[in-house]
């Protein structure tokens, strides 16, 4: 279990760094799919099996297919792939590093639970019960949000006719 955690998180962070560092967007998208798969592995280690399935289905499946479709649609020529400018790179690295160090300092001075409780049933059945009892209103609002997104995308992607 411990070894799996180190493998998954290490490979995930490596792929994430390559997503940012890579120059070609399609390669970045492929590496991002790997990031999502390793994240699903971490979810399995956290006993969140439902989330692992959703992660692979929605993120690695639907979202990344959408990304790749848009890349094919846009047909970005290699002349548009330019090198990074140094100030932005420096700013990005320093902001990311500062955030991580800050988080590490906060974690070091906070009292977090060390061991996980044993009696934790995180199957699909309790999640479904919770989703349709306590969280039924947000669940229904989500359906409205998806409908709004659908209408918005159709409106945005139609050609100007007037």
């Amino acid at each position: 279990m411990n070894l799996l955690f180190y493998i998954f998180s290490g490979l995930m962070l490596l792929c994430a760094a390559l997503v940012v560092a890579n120059r070609h967007p399609v390669t970045s998208a492929m590496l991002l799919i790997l990031v999502f798969f390793f994240m699903a592995g971490l979810f399995v280690l956290l006993e969140a099996f439902f989330l692992a399935v959703i992660q692979v289905l929605v993120y690695a499946g639907a979202v990344m297919v959408l990304f790749l479709f848009v890349m094919m649609l846009l047909d970005i020529r290699s002349s548009q792939i330019r090198r990074q400018n140094a100030p932005a790179m420096l700013a990005g690295l320093s902001v990311g590093f500062a955030f991580w160090v800050e988080f590490w300092l906060i974690l070091r001075h906070s009292a977090l639970p060390v061991g996980a409780p044993m009696n934790f049933d995180a199957g699909i059945r309790p999640i479904g019960k919770l989703l349709f009892s306590e969280f039924v209103l947000p669940f229904e609002i989500t359906s409205l949000l998806l409908l709004a997104a659908l209408v918005g995308v159709v409106l945005l992607s139609q050609k100007e006719t007037r």
């Binding site: 990005g92 690295l93 902001v95 955030f99 974690l107």
Partner: peptide, 25 residues
Amino acid sequence: NIALSDYLLVSAALFAIGLAGVVMR
């Protein structure tokens, strides 16, 4: 065993990489 802070550190590292990507790309 893997503690909660280990997961949170990995999560923060991923967030930091994403943040750096947003700023520099």
